[in-house]
Every structure is written in structure tokens, then in C-alpha cells.
Design a protein around this nucleic acid. Structure first.
Lengths: 203, 203
DNA sequence: GCAGGAATTCCACGTGTGAGGAGTTCAGGC
DNA sequence: GCCTGAACTCCTCACACGTGGAATTCCTGC
């Protein structure tokens, strides 16, 4: 009988969106479970695809991860345009831009994946430091005071990271439930002070 | 010959610190790699002990994890004593107490483990929310304004969480390298404002 | 219309995991 | 001096993982 359970092997006709389906499923899994928690088999199943295809299209799991982390240039550089116009509104615009990065479907998955994976273990922590550190600090600190610009940018960044984790990763109330405008209203002045207020007097 | 590689089985004489050794090794592994990343075999090896003993003393991996998360009462309630004396220094004392919690060897491992594990996946996120949320908010918000005490406590908490992650988890410069006093000097005013300053005007 | 390569299938390997259980030795209560 | 139970070692099971490769089918360029 040679039982015919096998879905016919071989190339499909037309443009099967396999490659894209894999990437989308990978984004979702990495975002939800981090690098270690996501498995190629589950990603393949979610994409409705054989595991071997992942290897075929993307190579190793690491390569897939890198591909999943790509954020469209146009979106990534939204942060760079915060520092235009009235310096009194840097804070509000930074918070706005940062939150919208976390809420835009084109970037939210990648951010979740980075944060989840980087915080999970010592080894992966460099990645977060490299990406958020390098990009975020580099984009921001040139616009600030020379002497402590890095400190200011880092503290503002740490604050925003904390808010993002509470709101988008852990879903901790009340930060996760707050009206977005209210959140901005609360945080903007704080960020503004970190960026431009006089440095603290030593204790 | 019946080769005698086996370390003699059976009970050791005297008080072998096995139970404590397992717990210490577990703390270290969970702190460094999170729940999923830590393996019972590695923990057992680090403790110089057979894997079966973990099961013998603590039951399942989950039970071990719970045991590793216990923070001495006396240390946990250090946070409760922040809100005494001059309200103008709530911020500074909160930041001080929080950082010392992260630096005290008796609690730092548990905090690292909680944060690493909770952020790693959706499933475990409740734990962080439960522990940090319930304990932190409950300890703090009673001391604040009735109408938005929860919001104030949560935002201050999110900020401190972000700073702790940057400094103690990811080791991102410059927050990780800053002098501790300088860090307090920068953050205390911000936290103070979250706790007691007038609420923001709606945009 | 034929050849080469891309897309697809399934199978196998080696490793690591948490869990469970069988057997051995010793401490402490009676 | 025995006997229960705690501490201890070893072995096994069933599963999941990432990787690799063989075989098949179809598209595309010539």
C-alpha cells in the first residue's frame, strides 16, 4: 500500500509566502518567550511549515534571531528626530517617540524579543547593551550637555526602559492600564529634568 | 573486580551542609541564567552533590525555585521603614533602601532570579508582578496621596526597576559604573517628585 | 525540452532536560 | 542491639532541542 501520508515533497507552484511566514512566526515566538524559550519546531509549526525550511532559508537559530530583530530603518530613526525645535519639549517628544516605538507592530516584536532575551541570561546581556546602549545613547547624548550628556541620556533611558518593561513586558498595573496620554504627562517632566535640569549637588 | 568507582552511597556522618549547598548553588544559577536557563544537573554539580538529592530535599525544580526566592524577612521589610521622618527625604531614602536591597548578598540573588525569570517569558511575568507589584506597591502607596498613590508608587517603582536592570542585570555603562552616591544624587530628586510633587496638568 | 537549482518533505543523530525509582549506608529512638 | 527513616548514589525513561542530510518535486533559464 505504501501509505501516502506524506505531503508531497518538492517545490510549490507560485509564490508561497514561506520565507515571510517563518519570519513572522519567529518574531512572535522570540517576542513572547525570548531566544532560549522559543524553539525552531514551534516556530515552524506556527508558520505551517517544515522545520527544515527554517534552516534552508535562514541557516542557524542565531541567524534567524538576527533576522527577526531587524527594525525598519525609517522607524528606528524616528528617535533621532526628537531633538528638533523647542528644547523645553524634548522630554515629551522623547517619551512619545519611545512609547510609539513599543506600540508600533513593526518594531514592538523586535523590542520585546531583545529585552526578553537580553535580560534572560548574563551571556546575552551584551546584546541589549550594544543595541539599546549604542543606538540610544549615540542618538541622544550629542544633543545634551557635554560634561554629563552620557549620564543624562542613560538615566532617562533607564527610566524609559523600566516603564516599558512594566507596561509592555510584565503588564503590571497600574502602569500597563494607564491612559497613554496620562503616562506621557507623568513621565515627560521627569525625562525633561534628566535631560536639561542642573546636575544634582553632591550629598 | 567489581570496579569501585562509586562514591560510597548512604548517609554521611555528621552534618553535611548538603541542603544549604544546594540552595546556594541554586540561587547562583537562577540569578545568572533565570529559571529556564538553569538546569538541575548544573546546580547539583556546582553544589558537589548528586542530582537526586535536589529532588530528595526540595521536590521539583519549581519548588527549588520558590525556595531560592525567599528573602529574609528582616531584609525585605527594610523597605517599609523608608517612610518615617521628614517627607522631604522620602525619595533619597527610597533610592538608598532599594539599591542596598540589590547589593546585599542576602537578597541580590533572589532579585536577579526573579527579574531574569519573570521577564524571560509571558508565563512567568505574573510572578514579578505579584511580588514586586503587591509587596512594593502595598508597602509604599499607603504613605502617599489617596487619589493617585498607586500611580505614584508604580512610576517610582518602574523607574527604580529600570535603573536596577541597567546597573545590576545588564551592566550597561554609564549607569553600572557610576558612583553609588552619584546615582542616588541623580535619582533621589526624581523619585521624590514622583512621590510628592503635584500631579501633571492634562495635556 | 533539458539541466540546474530552489523549495519542500522526512528521517536520524547526539545531547540535554526533569522526573522517577531501586538499592545502599548510616543516625537516632527505643 | 535492632529498626525505621533520612541521606546518599546510580540508572533509566520519555521527551525536546538544534543540526544535518537524503530524497522529491517543481520553477526557471537556456
Amino acid at each position: 500500500m505504501e501509505l501516502e501520508n506524506r505531503r508531497s515533497a518538492g517545490r510549490r507552484t507560485g509564490d508561497s509566502g514561506t520565507r515571510a511566514a517563518i519570519l513572522a512566526a519567529a518574531r512572535e515566538q522570540f517576542a513572547g518567550k525570548g531566544y532560549d524559550g522559543a524553539s525552531l519546531r514551534v516556530i515552524a509549526a506556527a508558520a505551517g511549515v517544515d522545520t527544515g525550511l527554517i534552516r534552508h532559508f535562514y541557516g542557524s537559530k542565531d541567524d534567524l534571531f538576527d533576522a527577526a530583530l531587524q527594525i525598519p530603518q525609517e522607524i528606528a530613526h524616528r528617535m533621532g528626530q526628537v531633538f528638533t525645535g523647542d528644547p523645553d519639549h524634548y522630554g515629551a517628544r522623547l517619551v512619545e517617540a519611545y512609547l510609539s516605538l513599543w506600540e508600533d507592530p513593526a518594531s514592538s516584536g523586535a523590542l520585546l524579543a531583545i529585552v526578553r532575551s537580553a535580560i534572560a541570561s548574563d551571556r546575552a546581556a551584551d546584546r541589549l547593551q550594544a543595541i539599546l546602549g549604542a543606538r540610544f545613547l549615540a542618538d541622544i547624548s550629542p544633543h545634551l550637555d557635554d560634561t554629563d550628556g552620557h549620564t543624562r541620556a542613560a538615566l532617562a533611558g533607564a527610566h524609559l526602559l523600566g516603564v516599558a518593561i512594566a507596561r509592555y513586558v510584565v503588564h503590571a498595573s497600574p502602569v500597563a492600564d494607564m491612559d497613554r496620554d496620562a503616562l506621557v504627562a507623568w513621565c515627560a517632566p521627569t525625562v525633561q529634568r534628566y535631560l536639561t535640569a542642573p546636575p544634582p549637588a553632591p550629598a
